[in-house]
Design a protein around this nucleic acid. Sequence first.
DNA 1: GGTAGGATGGGCT
DNA 2: GCCCATCCTACCC
Length: 188
Amino acid sequence: MMILPRRFYDRPTVEVARDLLGKVVVHGGVAGRIVETEAYLGLEDGAAHASRGLTARTKVIFGAPGHAYVYFIYGMYHCLNLVAEAEGSPGCVLIRALEPILGMEKMQQRRGVERLEALTSGPGKLTVAMGIDLNLNGADVTQGDFTVRRDGFLLDFPIAEGPRIGIRKAADWPLRFWLRGNRFVSKG
DNA sequence: GGTAGGATGGGCT
DNA sequence: GCCCATCCTACCC
């Protein structure tokens, strides 16, 4: 599988969010195919962390594309984003759900559940299953043992789009993308 | 089938 | 002090 090059991410965030569907996140011996994403934009997007401006937390989002933005939420979960847009221009894509394709036993150990549909069907679940935490914040996903790749298979479900989940501001913006009918999507 | 409530801690006003 | 880009359990149709 070919690692996605940095230029893949150096585009408008919405395009990157849509095109990440079907790509494969690899971390060590564990991998999953992306089936659901959300785009988070810049200053104009009240739901985006970057709308607060450049801070210690958001500096990764303003940095070079092709890096991971990982943050801690609700006191116990982590969420994985991939940074898009040129350096200096904020934008990132939240990975909301994966279809497990490699290392399912490891995922089951980390999650403490058996059902495949329960392993990675949500942003907090998939970071546990993949072993992703703050240590990977800022990591370059175009090289090393934490990467995103394309596998050459065609998408087997149509792409759907709709409002993002779990936010209050800009709640009606259609920036969520998913593979309609895929059983690993978090909702719908 | 559905949902209300609680766990739990960092970021920012 | 308030707000979260969440998840699981208990409980109720």
